[in-house]
Design a protein around this nucleic acid. Structure first.
Length: 254
DNA sequence: ATGGCAATAGAGTATTGA
């Protein structure tokens, strides 16, 4: 089973990229973030035609998450039931006995801004809900754009980013709190290339200069960690015309 | 060198992202 995550930064713009990528990478499950579409505009027919069933939770202009799957999506839940939130950032479904969660963690804008406070509160509540979910689902994977670079290996210029949003101690502690629940960053189970990232700024020739961050992650419960045989970042679609600023991350579960 | 790109809403320019 291959499971993947990709922040597409507008599914309206990126639908051709998505279909092309799925043709090249026929993963079993793909979690999307930043679809930026209301549910009535979601391209269900095109995705079905590509061989995928899909659940989605969107809103106008911002956020929006989805899960594509070759197998049926059961027990679909929108949002963290413990966190009152108008922003559509969480979608969960059970696929082939695995609880899959697509998550779009808030960006946080700047340390100590209102959005940063919201990000930390959101993560704290996610932690509480995940603890619960893990009790009822031994096989659980939470995939998405975490907007947190776990450590300095995940940052192109750690000195420049030190203490900044996406790299601050409080954000990293919030991510560590999630892994302390018994979730593992699948990427670090394996030897990985140096300076390998999942996001590059559109500005400053970020991708060409590889000025990026690794902020998109696949966290696995212990049961899935034992079955995980690979985790890779696919930079290929970042080189395509009019790309998303994020690259997909893929984990293989045997 | 502290900007720079891109998407959205909506009709010039503001907001957000990371």
């Amino acid at each position: 089973m291959k499971i993947a995550t990709w922040n597409v930064n507008s599914l309206k713009v990126r639908l051709p990229h998505l279909l092309r990528w799925l043709a090249d990478n026929p993963v079993d499950v793909l979690c999307l973030q930043e679809t930026k579409l209301t549910d009535d505009k979601f391209p269900v027919a095109e995705i079905n035609e590509a061989g995928y069933q899909v659940a989605f939770s969107g809103q106008k202009t911002y956020n929006g998450v989805a899960i594509l799957s070759k197998l049926p999506l059961l027990d679909v839940v929108r949002n963290n039931p413990r966190f009152e939130d108008e922003q559509q950032r969480i979608l969960a479904a059970t696929i082939d006995g695995v609880r899959i969660i697509s998550a779009y963690v808030p960006n946080g804008q700047a340390v100590d801004s209102d959005k940063y406070v919201y990000k930390l509160a959101w993560l704290k509540s996610l932690h509480e809900w995940l603890a619960e979910e893990m009790r009822s689902h031994a096989s659980l994977a939470i995939l998405g754009d975490y907007n947190i670079a776990p450590d300095d290996r995940d940052v192109h210029d750690p000195a420049a980013w030190e203490g900044q949003v996406l790299c601050s101690d409080k954000e990293r502690a919030a991510l560590t709190a999630l892994t302390d629940l018994g979730l593992t960053d699948s990427y670090r189970l394996f030897e990985q290339p140096e300076k390998n990232f999942s996001w590059w700024d559109y500005r400053m020739l970020g991708f060409q200069k590889n000025k990026g961050l690794r902020i998109d992650h696949i966290l696995l419960s212990e049961k899935l960690t034992q079955r995980c045989t690979a985790c890779v970042i696919d930079r290929a679609p970042r080189k395509w015309e009019q790309p998303s600023d994020h690259a997909p991350v893929i984990a293989t579960i045997d």
